[in-house]
């Protein structure tokens, strides 16, 4: 059976729970850390970004309206499926980042653990970020965090751990997102999309685009139906500034890119979740 043809994969986008080709019909070559050809990935266009935002907006009422407990269960399920794909992720990280298999295993473990950690926050963040407020009047006054809406995420170079660390905190609170995967190493992002498609995450909650950040991100930053943008993966400071300016048009929440690539293995803290929350305060009259 040595003359069996190998199955060459051409990766696609992940939009609205389906795997469409890029509307533009384009693709680009993905190469390993040492320059070997790995696969072709779809080269997303602005129209794919537009479609992804529509899908994310459509998914938002259902996902944000689900109970926090339910969202947590769905995300735990994702972690289970992630774990099942362990070998594939390890192989992809060995190729993409030139890690040893041992190092790659550690990164995959960390990514699964990160996902589980964020999943656990789904029904706990309210207690930490919400409050009941003492006011001078006959009111029961309380504040609760609510999801911002559709979040555009430019994923960092770290193709799996970095990706998980920016996507999980966005969706755990009920946001939906459009993720631009790492330009150089998009394959783990597509595999994560396959994981999401086969777990119980509703279509459109996470949409993954592969392609050039400089081409897609400006359309997301200026899009009037995107409520927030995470620029963590934007390496070029000039581009980051342009994107921030474009995002100001409809007062998007912006997470600016870090000075240096962060240490993704470190304790993430709550910042990435709280960055995409709105605080709703209710003044409820109480009897005298």
């Amino acid at each position: 059976m040595s003359d069996r043809l190998s199955v060459r994969k051409t990766y696609k986008l992940f939009v609205g729970g389906a795997f469409p080709r890029s509307e533009s019909g384009r693709s680009y070559e993905v190469r390993s850390a040492d320059g070997r050809f790995l696969a072709n990935a779809a080269l997303a266009s602005r129209k794919d970004a537009r479609d992804a935002v529509v899908a994310a907006r459509k998914a938002f009422p259902g996902w944000s309206g689900a109970t926090a407990y339910n969202r947590g269960q769905v995300l735990y399920r994702v972690a289970e499926v992630l774990e099942g794909r362990r070998a594939q992720f390890v192989a992809e990280l060995v190729d993409a980042e030139g890690l040893t298999p041992r190092e790659a295993e550690r990164v995959v473990d960390a990514a699964v653990d990160r996902w589980v950690w964020y999943a656990g926050w789904s029904d706990k963040l309210h207690q930490v970020r919400g409050s009941s407020n003492p006011v001078a009047g006959p009111y029961f006054d309380f504040s609760v965090p609510e999801p911002t809406g559709v979040v555009a995420v430019v994923a960092p170079a770290s193709p799996l751990l970095g990706l998980v660390s920016v996507v999980a905190p966005v969706i755990v609170t009920g946001n939906t997102c459009v993720v631009v995967a790492s330009e150089r190493a998009p394959l783990p992002a597509i595999t994560l999309a396959e994981v999401l498609a086969t777990s119980d995450v509703p279509g459109g909650v996470v949409n993954v685009l592969t392609g050039r950040v400089a081409e897609i991100a400006p359309w997301l930053a200026s899009h009037m139906d995107v409520n927030a943008i995470d620029l963590t993966g934007v390496g070029d400071p000039e581009l980051a500034t342009e994107l921030e300016a474009a995002a100001a048009e409809n007062l998007k929440r912006v997470v600016r890119p870090p000075e240096d690539e962060p240490d993704w293995a470190a304790d993430p803290g709550l910042d990435r979740m709280t960055a995409f929350l709105e605080i709703k305060t209710v003044w409820h009259p109480v009897g005298t």
Partner: peptide, 9 residues
């Protein structure tokens, strides 16, 4: 405007 519009507007 050259940018995508949102239904909220």
């Amino acid at each position: 405007t050259g940018r995508y519009a949102g239904p909220d507007h």
